[in-house]
Design a protein around this nucleic acid. Structure first.
Lengths: 156, 156
DNA sequence: CACTCTGGGTTCCTTCAGGGAACCCCAAAT
DNA sequence: ATTTGGGGTTCCCTGAAGGAACCCAGAGTG
């Protein structure tokens, strides 16, 4: 995949891509999110090569978005989302919303999301954490922040 | 990159990845979002190979998220987001939010977002389009939708 | 009118990651 | 003792990313 290391850029988008930007990673997360927690299940569902799946799972565990858990006395494992991983699913939900809107065509969306809080079918909407009004591409001004130097995290 | 064609899956996440899932694509979009609209600007900013940048831009134009516009009598072009593309930026904003929260470290976020509507620094928050309450990974039930067959869009 | 500069690519070669199939190990169950 | 099944590892092949060099069109300059 990317030979260029996005994780070292002073950009939270690039750093996030370093975690889930490799091919298949978002789909692996999606499967685990909806309850497919085992290697063979995910492999069969996605049709991904076992080699690549091994690599992706290891990468996601290493970055703390998945946890590998034994579920038997035999060497059997399942993968579950950590808190960090559950918050990553926000990105998947927004991706699903965009795909539903722009790519689903006449057939309509492949899946629907029922919101537990209200019981209705809905989709995610982006709001400003401060005032609660809609917040999209043209609604913001991008300013340099405290971590604007080239060092990632605590490297400098 | 991915040999497997995600666009044919009955999954809006996979289909969205077919548009922006290739390496560099989200970063190209980010650059254009923040006003870097020209080939050489983007190439220099990202350090991406010119060959790959050419391919990515063509792919994004082909999928209708970018528009290629002449800005001179000479053969000079700039790339701008379409409406479809501006809505894709929602995904970038959520990715930035996650990266800020989980990967920024002590240095703090590399960039800040000032919301025009309220003038305050904030970040995006996911809300249910129906009731307005928070909507995250564990707040939804995933149900089959009308387009749940294996055909994408109007293929069936 | 030749020369150069600039934006926006294209070509070519090398290296490395994804696809795919075969193989392996361990612990039950039969 | 043999099979089954989960969870991988190994191997080879192909194709995509990196990178540098090259190219072309049109404007400006002396």
């Amino acid at each position: 995949m990317q030979r260029t290391n996005f994780g070292d850029m002073a950009c939270s988008i690039a750093r996030t891509l370093d975690v889930i930007g490799e091919p298949w990673s978002p789909l692996v997360l999606r499967d685990i999110w909806v309850g497919m927690n085992r290697f063979d299940q995910i492999q069969a569902d996605l049709g991904i090569s076992r080699k690549v799946l091994t690599e992706r799972l290891a990468h996601l565990v290493e970055h703390g978005v998945l946890e590998k858990r034994a579920y038997d006395n035999r060497p059997r494992y399942e993968y579950v989302l950590t808190q960090k991983g559950r918050e990553l699913v926000d990105i998947l939900m927004v991706m699903a919303g965009w795909g539903d809107r722009w790519l689903a065509g006449e057939a309509g969306p492949p899946v629907l999301y029922r919101h537990h809080a209200c019981g209705e079918i809905g989709h995610v909407d982006l709001r400003c954490s401060h005032c609660g009004e809609p917040m999209h591409a043209d609604d913001v001004e991008v300013l340099p922040g405290p971590g604007a130097a080239t060092q990632p995290a605590s490297a400098g």
